[in-house]
């Protein structure tokens, strides 16, 4: 399962989608909205995606991970729209035969997502707002 959603993420559904009878390990990463950015108090985050391309880029990441770690199951759900502190922005779940591959694959997927998938977040904090990573 690879989805970009405008609704809140159902973590149990993400986990269920990654389950496999062949797996002995299922690893989950959940990214949430932090209350502070540096010293500034976060009011909300606004996420947007180039949805069709984001899905294609996520599929490429999964293909690489499948080749490297022999994934038995996987699921990625990324939320877009307006998110508040504590909301789940992204959930990644992978299952593999043994735990080591599941930790490695899960980390690879979230790290790659942050580097290549066309999704953007704007932080609205007390006293201003900023597109994250846009400027040096």
């Amino acid at each position: 399962m690879i989805v970009i959603t405008h609704n809140s993420i159902d973590i149990q559904n993400v986990i269920r989608s990654a389950e496999s009878a062949d797996a002995g390990a299922l690893n989950v990463f959940i990214g949430t909205v932090r209350s502070k950015t540096g010293e500034k108090k976060v009011i909300r985050l606004e996420y947007e995606a180039y949805e069709p391309m984001a899905i294609l880029e996520l599929k490429k990441i999964i293909e690489v991970a499948k080749a490297k770690w022999n994934l038995k199951g996987w699921a990625i759900s990324h939320r877009v729209g307006v998110l508040s502190v504590g909301d789940v922005a992204v959930a990644v779940a992978v299952s593999t035969a043994h735990r080591k591959e599941s930790f490695e694959a899960c980390q690879f997927i979230i790290d790659s997502l942050k580097q290549t998938v066309p999704i953007w977040k704007k932080e609205i904090f007390e006293g201003g707002e900023e597109w994250v990573s846009a400027h040096p």
Binding site: G31, Y47, A49, Y50, M53, A54, H78, A89, V90, I110, L113, K114, Q115, T116, V117, P118, I119, W120, K121, W131, V132, S133, A134
Partner: peptide
Amino acid sequence: IALIPPVSGG
């Protein structure tokens, strides 16, 4: 054609 500024998902 799409313009892709630095991405910041996750």
